[in-house]
Write a protein that binds this DNA or RNA. Sequence first.
DNA 1: CTGAAAGCGCTTACAG
DNA 2: CTGAAAGCGCTTACAG
Lengths: 340, 340
Amino acid sequence: MTDRKTKKVSLKDIARQAGVSTSLTSFALNGKGKEHRISEETVRHIIQIAKDLNYKPNIAAKNLRSGKSGVIGVVIPDISNIFFAQIVRSMEDVAARLGYTVFFGSSDEYAQKLQDLVESLINRGVDGFIIAPCERSEKFIHQLVNSNIPIVQFDRPYKNIESSYVTLNNHKAAYLATSHLIEAGFCRIGMVAYDISLSHMQERIEGYKAAMEDHGLKSEICIGFAKSDNLRKSTAKVIAKMKEKGIDALFFATNTISVAGLYAISEQKIAIPRELGLVGFDGSDAFELCSIPLSYIKQPVEKLSKKAVEILVNMLEEENRAIQCVQIDGELIVNASSSC
Amino acid sequence: MTDRKTKKVSLKDIARQAGVSTSLTSFALNGKGKEHRISEETVRHIIQIAKDLNYKPNIAAKNLRSGKSGVIGVVIPDISNIFFAQIVRSMEDVAARLGYTVFFGSSDEYAQKLQDLVESLINRGVDGFIIAPCERSEKFIHQLVNSNIPIVQFDRPYKNIESSYVTLNNHKAAYLATSHLIEAGFCRIGMVAYDISLSHMQERIEGYKAAMEDHGLKSEICIGFAKSDNLRKSTAKVIAKMKEKGIDALFFATNTISVAGLYAISEQKIAIPRELGLVGFDGSDAFELCSIPLSYIKQPVEKLSKKAVEILVNMLEEENRAIQCVQIDGELIVNASSSC
DNA sequence: CTGAAAGCGCTTACAG
DNA sequence: CTGAAAGCGCTTACAG
């Protein structure tokens, strides 16, 4: 650790000390010794001096000169959602292993905030993006893609935009959850969702519907919508209404809805699974610890984040602009909430 | 959004277009018009042209030249811990309001990782740090402070290092939790903690002991240690052993221990609070949703993060190196787990 | 194999 | 009030 007040050592200092030019020093320190046929001895000498002087390259200068930063910008809806916290955590690790740093920000599901975040990250010179879009951000994402900035859409891609993306196979996951409830003996199965057009939600809804239809339960399809700005109360209302209608099981479309649902059920003292079968989404300690553990669709967090980072880094390093669209299967975890 | 391939517009371009020098342009765009007595009209003209050209300053260049980055480095143990996820989220917001960006990383409680993270952030030119130290990082933090980099310690400060810090009043919080259990009628109260020397843990332990002593229960003091590398199992073992000893209530020292404790209690089918009274730490949905909701010490997340960011920004902007040490009180949330 | 020099896009004394 | 110029610390053609 050098004192901040004492000037930092620069390439020039090392060059002077080593008795060579800054060019040689730069090459040697960046592993381009062979490429430029510098004698191995010189390279070792330079590296040794850099170590002795505790040289730390000035990254701002590197960025300015090279136009690259080694930074990946990640925009997610909300870091305090356990699902995204795990995703970011995992991306952090994968990126570090590939020599990149992750900077992230939360959009709060506001298109404007997403845009501000992305622009600020661009100004800071990030090399590429992993973005979980939000409602009303399609046009902006489209512009981004058109402007040739490397980008991987994540979790809820706009699939008609020509860009790479990584997401859960949402249709299949919802189909799986719904079929499981049906096979467990429930037949009047409702779904609690958000009334948004993002792909993950639409596909979860479609998957639910498809499963109902395939089992001859088309007439029982029943979807209630929770409002994210008043989540607990609106979820409670939806559930109460569905109970009245005679629904005998529920599929919660997201982690946040699942948690809100568990609160509502605990307050309304509904007996699970006798009065109501349940399947949730994403998983959390609360799912396992609540009085009747909740069955749920588990997203493969590591696989999802690993894939997203890898695709992006590949774009950055190979100039490989081939579009890759990846959907990964979720897993159904069966607990007591769905066994009649 | 400009195409990435088309060259970005620079200060020079604006200067040329406006028919003035780059100096004027720089002053005008950075709100230093008055300071340099540039005519208001010129300033407006320049700003307008910058807008028309969709000028985005190159931040790498700004950093290089000014030596500042407008970035705060935040190092926490683990972003996938809900407490820290909320903290980071809140710091993000506060910093943005003050014109700063937050970059963060998880140390995983490894001193080496913490050091790597900090060094990489220094190389990236962050202006200052908010750091939650981990075991064996005292020397490094000390060096950091000595090297004059603005830093605020957070959550578990090394209090004998001369630096600002923000933390919960851990002694008081633990005292409060323990006293509450005593007043609720429990008397053989144990504590489950980590065997680490960090200040937050030591003070929670001291607070627990003080409460026991002050209520004439010194002889009942009983502390068990959970191991973080095998948290669930070790917590379960500790709890089983304490039950055998005749402990009638437990105080969990952290969020992670609380959750592990809830799992253990659910598996061991211990009746709460009849067989065992409980108070946990930090709060989570799981605390509220488990069969018997858990009483807990709630940390004032917003206040803590706001204060930490404010102190740091103050150091950065006012060159105010006066050390500020802040301890904020926690709140006891009483649920069914602690009422006899 | 190696060095001198240009230039990335800014800010800021300095000189008028 | 305003401009020409230096310089932040790098990388990389270019010329030997």
